[in-house]
Amino acid sequence: MRIAFSKLCVARPRKALNLLAGLALTGLFLAAPARTEAQTHAALPAASLSALTTGPARPIAAWAEFCERYAGECAVDRTEPAVITLTPALWQTINGINRRINRAVEAVTDLDHWRAADRWDLAEDGRGDCEDFQLLKRRLLVDAGLPRRAMRMTVVIDEKGEGHAVLTLITSRGDLVLDNKTNAILPWTQTGYTFVKRESQDAVGWVALGRDASPLTAANR
Score class of each variant (00 low, 15 high):
residue 2 R to N: 14
residue 5 F to T: 09
residue 6 S to E: 13
residue 7 K to Y: 09
residue 8 L to G: 13
residue 10 V to N: 12
residue 13 P to Q: 03
residue 16 A to L: 08
residue 17 L to R: 15
residue 17 L to N: 10
residue 18 N to C: 12
residue 26 T to Y: 13
residue 26 T to R: 11
residue 28 L to T: 15
residue 29 F to H: 04
residue 37 E to T: 14
residue 39 Q to E: 15
residue 40 T to S: 12
residue 41 H to F: 15
residue 42 A to F: 07
residue 44 L to N: 08
residue 44 L to R: 10
residue 47 A to Y: 11
residue 48 S to G: 13
residue 50 S to V: 07
residue 51 A to C: 08
residue 54 T to K: 14
residue 55 G to H: 00
residue 61 A to S: 13
residue 61 A to E: 15
residue 63 W to Y: 10
residue 65 E to F: 10
residue 67 C to L: 05
residue 71 A to S: 15
residue 77 D to I: 00
residue 77 D to R: 10
residue 79 T to D: 11
residue 79 T to S: 15
residue 80 E to F: 02
residue 80 E to Q: 12
residue 81 P to R: 04
residue 82 A to P: 00
residue 86 L to K: 09
residue 91 W to S: 07
residue 96 G to P: 03
residue 101 I to Y: 11
residue 103 R to L: 10
residue 103 R to M: 10
residue 105 V to F: 06
residue 105 V to W: 04
residue 106 E to W: 05
residue 108 V to I: 10
residue 110 D to Q: 08
residue 110 D to E: 02
residue 110 D to Y: 03
residue 114 W to V: 03
residue 114 W to T: 08
residue 122 L to P: 03
residue 127 R to K: 13
residue 127 R to F: 12
residue 131 E to W: 00
residue 132 D to C: 01
residue 132 D to I: 05
residue 134 Q to T: 08
residue 135 L to M: 09
residue 137 K to A: 01
residue 138 R to I: 01
residue 140 L to S: 01
residue 145 G to N: 02
residue 145 G to F: 01
residue 150 A to E: 04
residue 154 T to K: 09
residue 154 T to H: 05
residue 155 V to P: 03
residue 157 I to P: 06
residue 157 I to A: 09
residue 158 D to R: 09
residue 159 E to P: 02
residue 161 G to C: 02
residue 161 G to I: 04
residue 162 E to W: 11
residue 165 A to V: 15
residue 166 V to Y: 07
residue 180 N to Y: 02
residue 182 T to Y: 04
residue 183 N to D: 15
residue 184 A to S: 12
residue 186 L to E: 12
residue 188 W to M: 06
residue 189 T to Y: 14
residue 191 T to Y: 04
residue 194 T to N: 05
residue 197 K to M: 12
residue 198 R to H: 02
residue 201 Q to D: 01
residue 203 A to N: 11
residue 205 G to E: 04
residue 207 V to Q: 06
residue 208 A to C: 07
residue 211 R to S: 15
residue 213 A to S: 15
residue 218 A to Q: 11
residue 219 A to Q: 11
residue 220 N to D: 13
